[in-house]
Design a protein around this nucleic acid. Structure first.
Lengths: 107, 107
DNA sequence: AACTTACGAAAGTGTCAACTTACGTAAATT
DNA sequence: AATTTACGTAAGTTGACACTTTCGTAAGTT
C-alpha cells in the first residue's frame, strides 16, 4: 500500500495513470504524451507503477501495452477512505464522551 | 497539493497526523508515541506536515501544540475523489461510445 | 542570574528517487 | 542475415529525504 501511495504522490505518475485508465496504450504512445522528459524516464515510471500494481503490462509482439489496474486503485481509495473515517470516528467518540461527561460529577 | 500527498505517503507522518486529528498535543507527547526514533526526527516530520498545511502549530508557553488541519485534509480528500472520478467519467464515456457504435456500420 | 524544560535548527550520513545518455534485446521487416 | 522498431536496463548525476547527534534559544523555575 505504501508503494502505491508513494507512486501516486508523484504528479507525473498520476498523469500516466490517467492516460491508461480508460485506454490500453503502448509505452511509446504514453511517452509521446510527455515532451519534457525522455522515453526512458517514462519507462522507469511505468516500472514503478507496475511494481505498485497500479498498472498491468501485457506484451503484444514488440510492443508492451499498459492499462490501469482498477482493482488496486480501488484498494488504495478504500484504504484512504478508512484512514479519514477512522479519524472521524475517533472525533465522534471524543464528542460523545464529552457529552456524557457533562452529566457526571466525576469528570 | 503535491506536498500534502507526499507528506501523506510517509507512514510515520500518517500516524502522527492521526494522533493529532482529534486531540491537540504538544510535540513531546507526539514524540513519546514513537519509541524507535528520536524526538528530533518527529520534530522534522511535524515541520513537513506543517509546511504541507496538514497540521496547525500553536505556541503555548514553552510548548508547541499541534493539531490536524481538517480543512486541508478535506481538500486533499476531494482532490483524490475528483481524480478517481475524472477517470471513471472517462471510462463511462468510452463505454457509452462503444455501445453507440454497436449499432453502426462505420465502427 | 543560573538552571531546567521543550523544542526547533544546523550539520552530517546513508539511502532513495527522478532524471540523463548509452547499451542490450526480442520481435518484425527487408 | 542484416536492419529497424519498441522497449527495458545499466550506469551515472543531482537532489531530496529520513534519520542521527549536536547546538541554540525562548519560556518557566529556583
Amino acid at each position: 500500500m505504501d508503494t502505491a501511495l508513494k507512486a501516486l504522490a508523484e504528479p507525473r505518475r498520476r498523469e500516466i495513470l490517467k492516460l491508461v485508465w480508460t485506454a490500453e496504450l503502448p509505452a511509446a504512445e504514453i511517452a509521446a504524451a510527455f515532451s519534457d522528459v525522455t522515453r526512458s524516464a517514462i519507462s522507469q515510471h511505468l516500472g514503478i507503477l507496475r511494481e505498485a500494481a497500479l498498472v498491468i503490462e501485457r506484451r503484444e509482439g514488440v510492443r508492451r501495452m499498459y492499462r490501469a489496474n482498477t482493482e488496486e486503485m480501488k484498494r488504495v481509495r478504500n484504504f484512504l477512505e478508512e484512514y479519514w473515517l477512522d479519524s472521524l470516528d475517533r472525533l465522534r467518540d471524543v464528542a460523545e464522551t464529552a457529552e456524557r461527561e457533562k452529566g457526571n460529577t466525576n469528570g
